[in-house]
Nucleic acid binder design. Structure first.
Length: 1027
RNA sequence: GGGGUUGUAGCUUAGCUUGGUUGGAGCACCCGGCUGAUAACCGGGAGGUCACCGGUUCAAAUCCGGUCAGCCCCA
């Protein structure tokens, strides 16, 4: 006995143990490092990591994006690319981090933070962003995310900030970064404005007041404009009423009062009324009205009706109340009309002195204001409305639209460029390109970049008292302008840097803002490489990167900001291919959230299922359709792919070791089953590659699993005997080679998706390279592909199915040999293919027959609706005639096209034609393929005895298996039986001996005999090993 | 209110681009079979108003219009 070449594996070994073993193997052999750092001078594939913030625990969704990234990179690596920028990245700044810090210290306002000290506050932020970094690293490790964390870019580093300064200076000098006074979405709790993509994250469905308010026309006691609003708290600041110049308005009278409103709304709001007059909106322009509440001082030229195109006829009354301080449209009106605005709300969201609702938080003032309107009889109607309204996406506070001094990037000016560059991006799924993303670009808003906060990249703009500004693009420039370069570029240190104005030499102080953290992450393409200070990045060649992927929420987040920044700075798109991934839902299909407590951490998920099963789960179904965690599905996927593969290996290993087979190379096999498997393999490789290349990894996985299924349940099932029987002939060698080669190819194909188990099997099977991940991805050898053969095998498989069905109908077990099976097929079924399935068909004779030789009887019936009107009283006579002479008439019609009866001609359509199988046969057909299978029902004495012999064999085999006997171990068998069965045992004892490795078969009886039921009778069997 | 997307068996889904046999799988369930690699496999059964309404067409799960519901995004 030589040693085992192919090591046995324990099929039931827990995946977690395998994971650990493989992780150790990778570490001990420096494999991960080698993969990350080997430069092979091949084609380049450039990746870019979307930076998470490590101040929260990684959850199962992160696991999914990481798996997608990893799988793509592994595939590209095996496919002969050097992967560039295979490094991590961490997003460090921003409101989320500050909020976390506020919570820690128990702060609730900016004043508290400033009293505490920005320096200490930021120190805490800096540490807290990496609170869970160890868990992230650990999870990356466990899931097999091969990425270089030692070279990760970190957005809080001075180098990173400096690159952004360069960008901001560039934008400032090209007048794309500007300071403006605008109405911006503003969180009064956080004390800062939000950009459009941040606002987009915080919409909620809410019930809000919907009030109709009466504004009295100046000079009339009882004449009112009815205006509509969902923000009663803005009513004290009303300065205009706005109508659409093109709409029709009516002045009506009802119950002693007169009202202006949109003509189309009159019936909705009034029952009894008279129309006094109708107007176009523009006719109302300039009409003065009385102030609604006499609290605030408004400019003299306010309080009049003006026109605006933004007024719609859908909501309200067609008359919009405008408070310029609290709405972008309103603000534009005030600007146009040259009227200053009235703002009674301070930066913390509270009303100021002049109002009865002093110190009240703005949204809390709605109810008392409605009460006030009611009391003063200027409320026409009040109800609730369900609509969506933006809230701060981090702290949940209702946003206000509020006038602020802020820095903007004029994104709206490059909309066309954004859209042109979008054309160069491959989106997966493709509908995002012109859908959600394209639409967003088409109406791109200016980017409100500045934040009045503490922990962020400082805005590098300084200003002197004469109103001169300078934007600083580097630490070097800071020095040149007379500033000290602090060791840390964050606040508060940077705030202390005073420059000398290049124009007037006055001292310059920094604009106090930090910038939107989305600018940080969106800058990753260049800032991660410290461009332009480090020449590793070259805007000509370094972007677009080849591939990025993140969850769907990043479509208007990171996907957008990168696209904008890249277009602004380099005029091109940031990435070529982008895969957008849907969310993972919990097992009930609910979105996961911390508050609901159904949040599954990455760690927990891996611990529960193991790395490869977790990864495979992410490839079940398209990644852009959300999926629920499904324990059963995961188990199933794993069993059918990895489990079956392990089992194939196990089969191969045990037999190859017995035969002393060692794979050297694949030589052409003449065995048709081998040829078929290699054809299947190569067609699969072809489609897998196509799908991997187009990021349809879920389809690639399905292709692979289909192959594994065919491999195991067809190839192996039908060729088992070949591997068991006989010596290691040349033919058998060819089959081993085929088996080995196919198995190895599948392992390689699966390696990017299931890197652990494939490594595990690879090391046992081949181990030629240090790791399966250093292998080349399989390339289809089309010379092996034989579509006809694959098709023929499909037919063969169907013949098997049909025979089983026909047996079942006839009540004949598969183990019972039948006299004959007749097969009719539209396509040619070669003999060698039939030979393969013949053991399973289990018949004395198997014959291919022609259509006309099929043992069927034609039974015809007249179609009465057609023949009766012609034949009249002869109809029933004809009917009998047809039934009796079906065969003859059928042949006649087939030959001539008609048959005659009583000098009348009848054609095919005059008959209902049925084929009934001969009663001696059981019949099954697959009409789509044109296949018929007939099984002779008649079981004669001889066949019956063979059947019994097989029943006995089967029982003995079960007993052998139960006793865990070696395949080659001989036994003695004793049987307790009578009658036919006894006769069968005597008649076929050689056959039984051979199949069960029985040295002898005795008849006997005893308590230690195992009792079996065969055909309703009991027989006993005992087997004993031979010492 | 607008845009996008999804809706197929109890559950997970293929098919829809390009209309054309009887809408195909898997899981679960029931019955049966096969098995000395496989908690694997195979046959049968039950389970479908292909969300709903309308249109185009000889013919619609598929194309068109509308409605409803879910999800995502925007105002």
């Amino acid at each position: 006995m030589t040693g085992k070449i192919y090591e046995d594996i324990d099929i039931n070994k827990p995946v977690t143990e395998i994971d650990k073993e493989i992780l150790d193997y990778w570490k001990n052999n420096n494999i991960i490092n080698e993969a990350l750092n080997t430069k092979r001078d091949l084609k380049k594939f450039v990746f870019l990591e979307g930076p998470p913030t490590a101040n929260g625990r990684p959850h199962v969704g992160h696991l999914m994006t990481r798996t997608m990234k990893d799988t793509v990179m592994r595939y590209k690596f095996m496919d002969g690319y050097d992967i560039l920028r295979r490094t991590g990245g961490w997003d460090c700044h921003g409101l989320p981090v500050e909020l976390e810090a506020e919570k820690h210290f128990g702060f609730n306002s900016k004043k508290e933070i400033e009293d505490f000290g920005i320096q200490k506050f930021n120190e805490y932020c800096r540490e807290s962003v990496f609170r869970y970094i160890d868990e992230w690293h650990e999870v990356d490790d466990l899931i097999g995310f091969w990425i270089d964390q030692n070279k990760s870019y970190i957005t809080l580093k001075n180098d990173y900030i400096e690159s952004e300064w360069w960008a901001l200076k560039t934008l400032y000098e090209s007048k794309m970064l500007v300071k403006d006074y605008k109405i911006v979405p503003y969180c009064p709790r956080c004390g800062t404005s939000l950009s459009s993509h941040e606002v987009a994250q915080g919409y909620k469905n809410v019930d809000d007041p919907s009030v109709y308010v009466k504004f009295r026309e100046r000079g009339y006691e009882n004449r009112f404009f009815i205006a509509w609003t969902t923000t009663p708290w803005t009513l004290p600041s009303n300065e205009f009423l706005v109508v659409n110049p093109d709409f029709d308005y009516s002045l009506i009278s009802s119950q002693g009062e007169e009202y202006y409103l949109l003509s189309s709304m009159v019936d909705t709001l009034f029952k009894d009324y008279k129309i006094i007059k109708t107007f176009k909106g523009r006719d109302l322009d300039g009409i003065r009205y009385e102030q609604l509440m006499p609290f605030l001082h408004v400019p003299d030229n306010a309080l009049r009706v003006v026109t605006g195109d933004f007024v719609t006829a859908e909501d309200g009354t067609g008359i919009v109340h405008a408070a310029p301080a609290f709405g972008a449209d309103d603000f534009e009106i005030a600007k146009r009309e040259n009227v200053s605005m009235v703002n009674p709300v301070s930066l913390d969201g509270k009303f100021v002195d002049d109002l009865p609702w002093k110190d009240m938080f703005f949204e809390n003032a709605n109810i008392p204001i409605i009460d006030y309107l009611k009391k003063n009889k200027i409320l026409f109607k009040s109800q609730k409305i369900k609509h969506t309204y933006p809230f701060c996406y981090r702290c949940g506070t209702r946003l206000m639209y509020y006038p602020l001094d802020a820095w903007f990037i004029k994104v709206s000016e490059i909309r066309n460029l954004l859209m042109e560059n979008n054309e160069k991006i491959n989106w997966f799924p493709d509908y995002l390109k012109d859908g959600r993303f394209g639409n967003f670009l088409a109406e791109a808003k200016d980017w409100a970049l500045s934040r009045d906060r503490y922990w962020g990249t400082p805005l590098p703009v300084w200003k002197c008292k004469n109103g001169h500004y300078v934007a600083v693009g580097s630490r070097e420039e800071l020095k040149a302008l007379g500033g000290n370069v602090p060791e840390d570029l964050h606040r508060p240190f940077i705030d202390d840097v005073v420059l000398k104005c290049p124009q007037c030499s006055e001292p310059m102080h920094r604009e106090p803002h930090v910038i939107d953290t989305w600018f940080d992450s969106g800058s990753a393409p260049y800032a991660a490489l410290h461009y332009p200070f480090n020449k590793e990045f070259n805007s000509e060649t370094s972007i677009p990167v080849d591939f990025i992927t993140e969850a769907i929420d990043q479509t208007r987040g990171w996907f957008y900001t990168q696209h904008v920044i890249s277009s602004l700075l380099f005029k091109k798109n940031a990435y070529k291919n982008v895969l957008s991934i849907a969310f993972i839902l919990d097992e009930h299909g609910q979105k996961m959230s911390k508050s609901k407590g159904n949040f599954v951490t990455a760690r927990q998920f891996i611990d529960d299922f193991g790395a490869d099963p977790a990864r495979l789960f992410f490839f079940s179904g398209a990644p852009w359709n959300s999926k629920s965690i499904d324990r059963k599905l995961i188990g199933d996927l794993t069993r059918k792919s990895l489990g079956t593969l392990g089992n194939i290996y196990s089969f191969f290993a045990s037999n190859a070791n017995l035969d002393n087979f060692v794979f050297e190379k694949l030589e052409k096999s003449e065995n048709i089953l081998d040829m078929w498997l290699l054809s299947r393999l190569n067609s699969t490789i072809k489609s897998v590659r196509i799908n991997m290349d187009s990021f349809n990894m879920h389809i690639a996985l399905k292709n692979i699993m289909d192959l594994i299924d065919d491999f195991s349940n067809f190839y192996l099932r039908l060729s088992r005997k070949n591997f068991w029987e006989g010596e290691l002939s040349e033919d058998k060698k060819r089959s081993y080679e085929t088996l080995y080669f196919t198995l190895l190819s599948i392992i390689k194909m699966l390696a990017p998706m299931a890197p652990f188990y494939s490594e595990y099997l690879y090391q046992k099977l081949s181990g030629e390279k240090k790791s399966v991940h250093f292998e080349d991805y399989p390339v289809a050898d089309t010379s092996y592909i034989n579509e006809d053969l694959e098709k023929t095998f499909k037919y063969a498989e169907t013949v098997l199915e049909l025979s089983r069905r026909a047996r079942q109908d006839a009540g004949i077990k598969g183990r019972q040999t039948v006299k004959e099976i007749l097969i009719y097929s539209d396509v040619n079924l070669p003999e060698d293919v039939l030979n393969i399935i013949s053991p399973e068909l289990n018949a004395e004779s198997i014959r291919l027959i022609n259509q006309k030789d099929r043992p069927v009887k034609v039974v015809m019936k007249p179609v009465y609706a057609r023949v009766a009107p012609v034949l009249r009283s002869k109809t029933s006579e004809f009917s009998d005639f047809v039934l009796k002479n079906s065969e003859k008439i059928y042949r006649e019609i087939m030959d001539k096209g008609y048959t005659e009866y009583n000098d009348l001609q009848f054609k095919k359509e005059d008959f209902e034609i049925n084929e009934i199988p001969d009663e001696n046969y059981s019949f099954a057909s697959a009409d789509k393929l044109g296949l018929n299978v007939f099984i002779n029902r008649h079981i004669d004495e001889k066949l019956k005895l063979i059947g019994y012999a097989r029943e006995i064999i089967r029982r003995i085999q079960i007993m052998r298996k139960d006793m865990n006997l070696e395949y080659s171990e001989f036994i003695n068998t004793s049987i307790d039986c009578t009658g036919d069965i006894k006769e069968a045992v005597q008649e076929y004892s050689d056959y039984i001996k051979k199949e069960t490795l029985s040295r002898e078969i005795k008849f006997g009886s005893g308590d230690d005999y195992r009792v079996w039921d065969i055909d309703g009778g009991h027989i006993g069997i005992k087997i004993e090993t031979i010492n």
